[in-house]
């Protein structure tokens, strides 16, 4: 047992199933029909987190850079898969540009955070790199799916305006500059809003985790500030690069709007 941490025993973990039973009871009583989802969700939570726990233990113990980077690539791929599910437009292929730009830009941001700001040695030290990169990928995933959804829906809703500009000689950039701007903004707003609310409305997960594991709150908040600011940068970077690349694919070489 690590000093300063109260370990949760398997029995205590089983006791937590009481919470699920409570929610399940409410579902039965109100005929919500959520019983199956609750069951599957609970099993998945146990399975996925235990698996992650063992994978992380393995990566921490082996301590090799390629394994850390493989894990990072896997996280990005999983994020792209989730974006694919959230964005309801499939006439424009956006998965590969999204994957490539997320992989490149977020490895850069993660590197800067671990190597320059936190000063971890080596920079890929899994204990720092994986949770920090994970937060970057997770938050940017939300930003990118909001931005892409907005880009596609505006291109469809404002098709007349886009084609009016094209018909008058605009290229695809000129025809869609307002739409691109709005999409990027929509993607960035949640992370900017969280800058306002942090510490007042919510105690962020990472800070809570550090405090629970015995870290001095004044150290935990410094990490949290780094995280908040890096998330603003990475959501901006992600939204700008991905919408820029995907917008190009919404138009043909003949400057014709493809999305319908």
């Amino acid at each position: 047992m690590t000093p300063g941490i109260i370990e949760i025993s398997p029995w205590q973990l089983l006791l937590c199933l009481g919470f699920v039973l409570l929610a399940g009871g409410a579902s039965v009583y109100h005929k919500l029909g959520l019983g199956r989802d609750l069951l599957v969700g609970t099993v998945r939570t146990f399975a996925q987190l235990f698996l992650m726990g063992y994978v992380l233990t393995f990566i921490f113990e082996t301590h090799t850079s390629w394994l850390v980077l493989l894990m990072f690539t896997f996280m990005v791929a999983a994020a792209v898969h989730i974006i694919k599910g959230r964005v309801k437009e499939h006439s424009v292929p956006f998965l590969i540009p999204t994957f490539v730009s997320m992989l490149i830009s977020y490895s850069l941001v993660s590197y800067i955070v671990t190597a320059v700001i936190v000063g971890a040695k080596p920079w890929w030290t899994p204990q720092y790199f994986i949770p920090l990169a994970g937060m970057i990928v997770g938050n940017s995933m939300t930003a990118i799916s909001i931005a892409l959804e907005r880009l596609f829906s505006d291109l469809k809703a404002r098709r007349n305006e886009v084609e009016m500009r094209l018909a008058l000689g605009a290229d695809y950039r000129e025809a869609s500059q307002d739409i691109l701007r709005n999409a990027i903004k929509a993607g960035m707003i949640p992370s900017i809003n969280s800058l306002m609310a942090v510490g007042l409305v919510s105690l962020p997960g990472m800070m809570t985790g550090q405090i629970l594991s015995g870290t001095d709150p004044l150290i935990a908040i410094r990490y949290q500030i780094v995280v908040m600011l890096m998330l603003v940068a990475s959501t901006a970077l992600g939204a700008i690069i991905v919408t820029g690349l995907v917008r190009r694919r919404c138009f043909s070489d003949a400057q014709r709007l493809i999305v319908r």
Partner: peptide, 18 residues
């Protein structure tokens, strides 16, 4: 494309002004 569309100008059914 821009040259073609300058020579062959398309006016939409629903007028679009900004």
């Amino acid at each position: 494309p821009a040259e073609l569309r300058r020579a062959v100008s398309y006016v939409q059914q629903m007028p679009t002004l900004l």
